[in-house]
């Protein structure tokens, strides 16, 4: 595959972003390196219908964006990484851990949390209950309390809303709940499936601001987004998917030179 042979430049980029991220890490409470989530020649689909035709992917520090037109397989690919869609062929690893055949409920214990499309909040539960459900895989009560304090530190707006039902919150606050709940799992890698979907346009910037707060704390984010312009401001590395294959990958600066690609797949 062409994008595998391009790995040389990719490694350089990764080294660069390591340096850049190093500065961020100093201010963050969480230390230590976040493992790389990588996929090699992943094929997957639904029933007889193959969606992914050999995707090779590697997460970078900060925000790795996956763009692509509708039906390109972005969401399916994300779901292979969190175990909801089974992998037909190829491997998925997180650091040294092989996730290829793991179930979603096991993958989360390795430190990967997913925010499904639209945030996936539990509307009938209170904010605090939402956060508690996020920690169901965690046994250590002290760690849970610590993380809850951390969530409220990152999203102080939730402090007064703890007893309120999640459905009563605004779109932006619901996103905070969703991100906070994912933080409760203790994950350091977050898979975000179109977090801006369903948000009012004026809230989109705020939403990306919330993701930035997560990254500032040393988290690694893999972000699927239709709103390419807004997401590019956050991106440290970009993949473009179409028809179940990787069409481009590189730092966002390189993307601006690819006029044809931008127009063809992203409509920019």
């Amino acid at each position: 595959m062409s994008d595998v042979t391009g790995g040389g430049s990719g490694a350089d980029d990764a080294a660069d972003s390591d340096d850049a991220a190093g500065a961020d890490f100093d201010g963050a409470q969480r230390t230590g390196d976040v493992p790389t989530l990588s996929a090699t020649d992943v094929e997957a689909g639904y029933d007889q219908h193959q969606v992914l035709h050999g995707i090779t992917f590697e997460s970078r520090d900060g925000v790795t964006c996956i763009f692509g037109p509708n039906g390109s397989g972005k969401s399916t690919f994300l779901k292979t990484m969190n175990g909801i869609v089974p992998v037909w062929d190829g491997t998925i690893t997180y650091g040294d851990v092989d996730l290829t055949d793991e179930k979603p409920e096991d993958i989360v214990t390795h430190g990967i949390a997913t925010l499904p499309q639209g945030g996936g909040i539990f509307a009938s539960l209170s904010v605090e209950e939402n956060l508690n459900v996020g920690a169901f895989t965690v046994d250590d009560a002290d760690a849970i309390a610590e993380r809850k304090a951390e969530v409220l530190e990152v999203f102080p707006a939730l402090e007064d809303k703890l007893d309120q039902k999640a459905r009563e919150l605004s779109g932006g606050q619901q996103m905070m709940v969703s991100l906070g709940r994912a933080m409760m799992t203790g994950a350091d890698t977050f898979l975000l499936d179109e977090p801006s979907a369903g948000l009012a346009p004026r809230l989109v910037d705020d939403a990306f601001g919330l993701i930035e707060r997560l990254v500032d704390r040393g988290a690694q984010v893999i972000l699927i987004e239709q709103n390419v312009r807004a997401a590019l401001r956050l991106a440290d590395y970009v993949y473009i998917l179409a028809e179940g294959e990787v069409q481009f990958h590189g730092p966002p600066e390189d993307l601006s030179e690819e006029d044809e690609l931008m127009e063809l797949y992203l409509g920019l």
């Binding site: 979603p104 949390a113 499904p116 909040i121 009938s124």
Partner: peptide
């Protein structure tokens, strides 16, 4: 209740 409200989210939370 979590799986009722959002099954995908419930699964991704373990």
């Amino acid at each position: 209740k979590a799986l009722r409200d959002d099954q995908d989210a419930a699964e991704s939370l373990g």
